[in-house]
Lab assay of single mutants.
Amino acid sequence: MTYKAILNGKTLKGETTTEAVDAATAEKVFKQYANDNGVDGEWTYDDATKTFTVTE
């Protein structure tokens, strides 16, 4: 399944996708990606669109 992350960081804005077996696995991948890029904020998840959003 393909999951998407939308990054609304102070220094990084954009989107990325990952293939994962479930939302929990995708969330770990996206949170690591955000952390590696200095983005730390509030996370939300929309199951209907399989989209995570982080906003700083």
Rank of each mutant, 00 (worst) to 15 (best):
M1V: 13
M1A: 13
M1F: 14
M1I: 14
M1Q: 14
M1T: 15
M1R: 13
T2P: 06
T2G: 06
T2L: 14
T2A: 07
T2R: 13
T2N: 08
T2D: 06
T2V: 14
T2K: 13
T2E: 10
T2I: 15
T2M: 13
Y3L: 03
Y3E: 05
Y3R: 04
Y3H: 05
Y3D: 05
Y3W: 05
Y3A: 05
Y3T: 05
K4C: 08
K4F: 11
K4L: 07
K4Y: 13
K4P: 04
K4D: 04
A5E: 05
A5D: 04
A5T: 04
A5K: 02
A5Q: 03
A5L: 15
I6A: 04
I6C: 07
I6F: 06
I6W: 04
I6H: 05
L7C: 07
L7K: 00
L7D: 02
L7H: 03
L7P: 00
L7N: 00
L7Y: 12
L7A: 02
N8E: 07
N8V: 12
N8L: 13
N8D: 10
N8M: 11
N8G: 04
N8K: 10
G9C: 14
G9D: 02
G9H: 06
G9E: 02
G9N: 04
G9Y: 06
G9S: 09
K10P: 10
K10G: 07
K10A: 12
K10R: 13
K10D: 07
K10F: 11
T11D: 11
T11V: 11
T11Y: 14
T11I: 11
T11K: 11
T11W: 13
L12G: 07
L12Q: 07
L12R: 09
L12Y: 15
L12T: 11
K13N: 09
K13Q: 12
K13C: 14
K13I: 10
K13P: 04
K13V: 09
K13L: 07
K13G: 05
K13S: 09
G14R: 12
G14Y: 14
G14W: 15
G14F: 15
E15C: 15
E15L: 11
E15I: 13
E15K: 06
E15F: 14
T16E: 05
T16W: 15
T16S: 07
T16A: 12
T16R: 10
T16C: 15
T16I: 15
T17R: 09
T17I: 09
T18V: 14
T18H: 06
E19Y: 15
E19D: 11
E19H: 13
E19C: 14
E19Q: 14
E19W: 15
A20I: 02
A20D: 02
A20G: 03
A20V: 04
A20Y: 02
A20K: 03
V21S: 11
V21G: 09
V21E: 11
V21Q: 12
V21P: 15
V21D: 11
V21F: 12
V21T: 11
V21M: 12
D22P: 01
D22M: 03
D22R: 02
D22I: 01
A23W: 13
A23L: 09
A23N: 05
A23E: 07
A23C: 13
A24I: 11
A24S: 11
A24R: 10
A24E: 13
A24F: 10
A24Y: 10
A24K: 11
T25N: 07
T25G: 08
T25R: 06
A26I: 01
A26S: 01
A26D: 01
A26T: 00
A26L: 00
A26P: 00
A26N: 00
A26W: 01
E27A: 11
E27T: 03
E27S: 06
E27V: 06
E27N: 04
E27Q: 11
E27Y: 15
E27W: 15
E27K: 10
K28D: 06
K28V: 09
K28P: 03
K28F: 07
K28T: 10
K28L: 12
K28Y: 08
K28C: 09
V29F: 15
V29L: 11
V29Q: 07
V29Y: 15
V29W: 14
F30N: 01
F30G: 00
F30D: 01
F30S: 00
F30A: 00
F30Y: 01
K31I: 07
K31L: 08
K31T: 05
K31H: 08
K31F: 06
K31Y: 06
K31Q: 08
Q32C: 05
Q32I: 09
Q32T: 08
Q32R: 10
Q32F: 05
Q32P: 01
Q32K: 13
Q32H: 06
Y33P: 01
Y33C: 12
Y33E: 02
Y33V: 05
Y33I: 08
Y33S: 01
A34G: 03
A34D: 00
A34P: 01
A34T: 05
A34M: 08
A34H: 02
A34R: 00
A34F: 11
A34I: 05
A34C: 12
N35C: 14
N35R: 15
N35Y: 15
N35D: 11
N35A: 15
N35H: 14
N35T: 14
N35Q: 15
N35L: 15
N35I: 15
D36R: 09
D36W: 07
D36F: 10
D36Q: 12
D36L: 11
D36S: 10
D36P: 01
D36G: 05
D36C: 09
N37W: 14
N37P: 01
N37V: 14
N37F: 14
N37S: 08
N37Q: 13
G38K: 07
G38D: 07
G38W: 09
G38Q: 07
G38E: 05
G38L: 06
V39G: 02
V39A: 04
V39P: 02
V39W: 15
V39E: 02
V39M: 12
V39C: 04
D40H: 14
D40F: 15
D40E: 13
G41T: 02
G41F: 05
G41Y: 05
G41M: 04
G41L: 04
G41S: 01
G41K: 00
E42D: 12
E42H: 11
E42P: 05
E42L: 12
E42Y: 12
E42V: 13
E42W: 12
E42S: 10
W43Y: 02
W43P: 00
T44Q: 09
T44Y: 11
T44M: 09
T44A: 09
T44F: 11
Y45Q: 01
Y45K: 00
Y45S: 01
Y45R: 00
Y45F: 06
Y45D: 01
D46P: 00
D46I: 04
D46W: 02
D46S: 05
D46H: 05
D46E: 06
D46V: 05
D46M: 04
D46Q: 03
D47E: 14
D47K: 09
D47V: 10
D47Y: 08
A48R: 11
A48K: 11
A48P: 07
A48F: 09
A48H: 09
A48Y: 10
A48S: 11
T49I: 06
T49N: 08
T49R: 06
T49Q: 06
T49Y: 04
T49E: 06
K50M: 10
K50V: 03
K50C: 04
K50H: 12
T51M: 03
T51W: 01
T51Q: 04
T51R: 03
T51A: 03
T51N: 02
F52S: 00
F52I: 02
F52M: 02
F52W: 07
F52L: 00
T53P: 00
T53S: 06
T53H: 09
T53E: 05
T53F: 13
V54D: 01
V54G: 01
V54F: 15
V54L: 13
V54M: 14
V54R: 02
V54K: 01
V54N: 02
T55Y: 08
T55M: 07
T55R: 05
T55C: 06
E56I: 07
E56R: 02
E56A: 07
E56T: 07
E56K: 03
E56Q: 10
E56F: 08
E56P: 07
